[in-house]
Write a protein that binds this DNA or RNA. Structure first.
Lengths: 359, 359
DNA sequence: CTGAAAGCGCTAACAC
DNA sequence: GTGTTAGCGCTTTCAG
């Protein structure tokens, strides 16, 4: 038979530590929680005992007694992968630095959101909810508000909650400007469905860049594919839009700002099927800087995804410690990453500037 | 002032429900846990009251009393994204079907594993641990074993734990055979570092295919890049290996089995820099079927990642309910996905068969 | 079938 | 400073 100690290893409680260290449980608790009013030597003794016994507090007992869970949940659409993974990585890194847990709910279908929110809302389960990149059903907003749980939105905005997002207008402006300065005209745009906020904002940035450079805007130079999934932020839509452009013949733009990298992929495919080369014949700048972009040598607007994740958690923490904070909307500016698809690296002009922005 | 009810909504306990339904808390608990010995009418009454009051049990109080957490944790390397995301999706879907929670630990560096394991092992915190695709440090194995927590491995194998993985040998065999049957010779292989199990196994499958077809194996036709990160499963390594092949001149293989899609990307890039076209001049078959592969029209071996996730959880559940189960290693066979890079779609032979496997 | 009561392991308020 | 004790909200014997 094994010595009792063997078994005790697993059900060691604060009482065992207390007895062994010749103090009360309160003192042990204080030591473990770094409460100031413990004599230094007592503290040391307790610490030693706890260590020697390899004592591990029972998480759920703590959570019950403390009435907080030290857990955050993230509700995130999986289907649009890479972008989220990077943000999620930031989220997870920061959360674990804080000693919190992350519970993950992956949504494939907007209808699942409500169920997951309910679950997260279950009394005591999580201290806060991170909601990623989705239009939140009105019903859910209401529930969230009445339960009063801290919520922060990532890559989506609502007047009711804190949010972390990206400056789409600025990004589109920068991308378009880059193209204009490269000198190839006219500059067209492949956009996603205008039902989505990013699409609207990116169009705005495109228009603004034209305006600043004294170029008049033409409806014909902006096209959207008809494949609707993910609001048109998909490969097929890019392909379709570009195919439409190609039908314009010699009139077609020589440079394009495309509202996402994934659409740019499709657009480039359409081009290459029609014997047009990027960047030799046509310049392209995308948006997002997903992993694909690097492999495709796509010039694009990089969003600081990892940072967004970190910041989302920080904001959450701030709100948890002070629920009365004003609602804050934080916006990151994307940066231009120059690779080959825009043709900058083949010109002698503008190259240096462009490159210097790179890292 | 709001009616008390408003406040009660949030701190409603089982006692409130009991009082309202005129029963003891034990009965309420039984009803909520579907314990059989409750009179049907009592059950109904309690259920109604609970519903009317919108009672939500306190998760952590339950977990404390039940002495189980209904939570599984997944420790997963983020850096190799797409592959894991799909598996993770399977994991999460199944976990949430079971009403369990998923807590996520993302590892960037193998050294973090130990810390995360310790955390997960914290008494009561999780009922089981899913470990993804990593060589587990000996130290960790020992801890895992002595605490006796159920563990299941995904995309990695160890004699000590259940595992779900992929039949690398078979996959490599199928890929190589496909290439051989397409008729282009010789068939070479771009492999990853032989320190990794998948690389070893995939080489084995390649050799076996040659053998079966009466082709003698030559050392010179297998190369590995020197960029070591991720055990050579990276783009650069593929590029380097293919560059080496190109130096062989006219002697170089006309068809290649590449041990991962990401390496295939690099290989194709090297080829195209040397004016060789895929599949016009060279045939390529990859492995994994990451998202990229579809966009690149890469013929590859698809691993049923989502299914692997589901199965991992199922196995976990089985082991949780019966810790004495024999250790089981489950292996999935990858399937050949024919796209353009192998050239099959341009031949008339072999095409139909190949395509019919597609979907 | 059901109520009462004894925990689950920890924190925090209260005395000393 | 430190020990004692009363919860935290739920589950689970144990009587009846």
């Amino acid at each position: 038979m094994l010595p009792k100690k063997e078994i005790a290893t697993h059900k060691l409680t604060i009482y065992d530590v207390a007895k062994e260290a010749n103090v009360g449980v309160g003192t042990v608790s204080r030591v473990l929680n770094n409460h100031p009013s413990v004599a230094p030597e007592t503290r040391k003794r307790v610490k030693d005992v706890a260590e020697r016994l390899n004592y591990q507090p029972h998480t759920y007992a703590q959570r019950l007694a403390k009435r907080q869970s030290e857990t955050l949940s993230a509700i995130i659409p999986f289907f649009t992968n890479y972008f989220f993974i990077e943000i999620l990585q930031g989220v997870q890194d920061r959360i674990s630095q804080l000693g919190y847990d992350l519970v993950l709910y992956g949504v494939n279908n907007i209808d699942q959101v409500e169920g997951y929110v309910s679950r997260a809302l279950q009394r005591g389960r999580v201290d806060g909810i991170l909601l990623f990149s989705m239009k939140i059903p009105e019903k859910v907003i209401v529930r969230l508000q009445e339960t009063n749980v801290p919520v922060v939105l990532v890559d989506t905005v609502s007047p009711h909650f804190d949010s972390i997002s990206v400056a789409n207008v600025d990004g589109a402006y920068a991308a378009t400007t880059h193209l204009i300065e490269l000198g190839r005209r006219p500059v067209g745009m492949v956009n996603a469905q205008l039902v989505s906020a990013p699409a609207i904002e990116r169009l705005q940035g495109y228009k603004h860049a034209l305006e600043i450079h004294g170029i008049s805007f033409s409806e014909d130079l902006v096209k959207t594919g008809c494949t609707m999934k993910q609001d048109g932020f998909n490969r097929e839509a890019g392909y379709e839009a570009m195919s439409d452009f190609i039908k314009m013949g010699p009139e077609m733009p020589k440079a394009f700002f495309v509202s996402s990298d994934i659409q740019a992929m499709g657009a480039i495919a359409a081009l290459s099927e029609n014997e047009m080369r990027v960047p030799d014949d046509i310049s392209i700048v995308g948006f997002d800087d997903i992993e694909l972009a690097r492999h495709l040598k796509l010039t694009t607007m990089r969003q600081p995804m990892y940072q967004m994740g970190i910041l989302a958690v920080d904001r959450m923490v701030a709100r948890m410690s002070n629920p009365d904070l004003e609602i804050l909307h934080t916006t990151f500016s994307p940066t231009l990453i120059v690779r080959e698809s825009c043709g900058a690296l083949r010109n002698s002009d503008g190259l240096v500037t462009a490159k210097s922005k790179l890292r």
